[in-house]
Simulated scan of single mutants.
Amino acid sequence: MSHHPMVMSAKRMIQEAFEGPADPQEGSYYVNTEPNSGVLGLLESISAQKASQDINGTNLAAHTDHVRYYVWGTNEILTGNENPKMQWEESWKIENVSDEEWRDLQEELRTEYKKLLEGVDRMKSIDIHTNEVLGSLAHTAYHLGAMKQMMKMV
């Protein structure tokens, strides 16, 4: 059985949000066409010190942990577990990260992202998980924009 076109489109959009465009020569649906223009590439270019810099009461490390947290929540739902009781305030508590903590946080985000793609791959059609997947896509795109704006200040 093949995947529903909407499922395949959602997967491609999620990949673009995290990795940037599949082929920069062909353009992009909504991110810049430069290499590493998705969330993961953007974060790799930032030091722990810059990720910890306060910008209007938050920082890039906290945004990163927040993205990791909600993707984890989506993954819990996609794997058939009960909807987790999300405690959003916990995902915003990071104030400072060391170099090691910053690398670990990025790796945790990358791991959750890969699990998300696996979860989308298990979807053969539009189903009860569609809203959750599309919500993760929209949420990631929002935070990618917020992070890019924050980058201008660090």
Score class of each variant (00 low, 15 high):
M1L: 13
S2E: 11
H3N: 11
H4N: 10
M6Y: 12
V7K: 07
M8T: 08
M8R: 12
M8E: 13
K11V: 02
M13I: 05
Q15K: 06
E16Q: 07
A17F: 09
A17C: 10
A17Y: 05
E19V: 00
P21F: 05
P21E: 06
Q25E: 01
E26T: 07
S28W: 08
Y29L: 11
Y29I: 00
N32G: 07
E34D: 03
V39S: 02
V39I: 12
E44S: 06
S47K: 08
A51N: 04
G57D: 03
G57W: 03
T58E: 06
T58P: 08
T58A: 14
N59E: 04
L60Y: 04
A61L: 06
A62E: 00
A62H: 01
D65L: 13
V71L: 13
E76M: 08
I77L: 08
I77G: 11
G80D: 03
N81T: 07
E82Q: 09
E82K: 15
E82R: 10
N83I: 05
K85H: 09
E89Y: 14
E90D: 10
E90V: 03
W92M: 08
K93M: 08
I94P: 01
E95K: 15
V97H: 06
D99I: 00
W102F: 03
W102C: 07
D104E: 14
L105H: 04
E107V: 10
L109M: 03
L109Q: 06
R110Q: 03
R110F: 10
T111E: 12
K114E: 15
E118C: 07
E118A: 08
G119C: 00
V120E: 05
M123L: 12
M123R: 08
I126W: 14
D127W: 13
I128V: 14
H129W: 14
T130L: 03
N131Y: 15
L134V: 13
G135M: 08
G135D: 09
S136H: 14
L137E: 02
A138N: 13
H139M: 03
H139K: 06
L144Y: 00
G145C: 01
M147P: 03
Q149H: 07
Q149W: 09
Q149M: 12
M150I: 02
M150E: 04
K152I: 00
M153A: 09
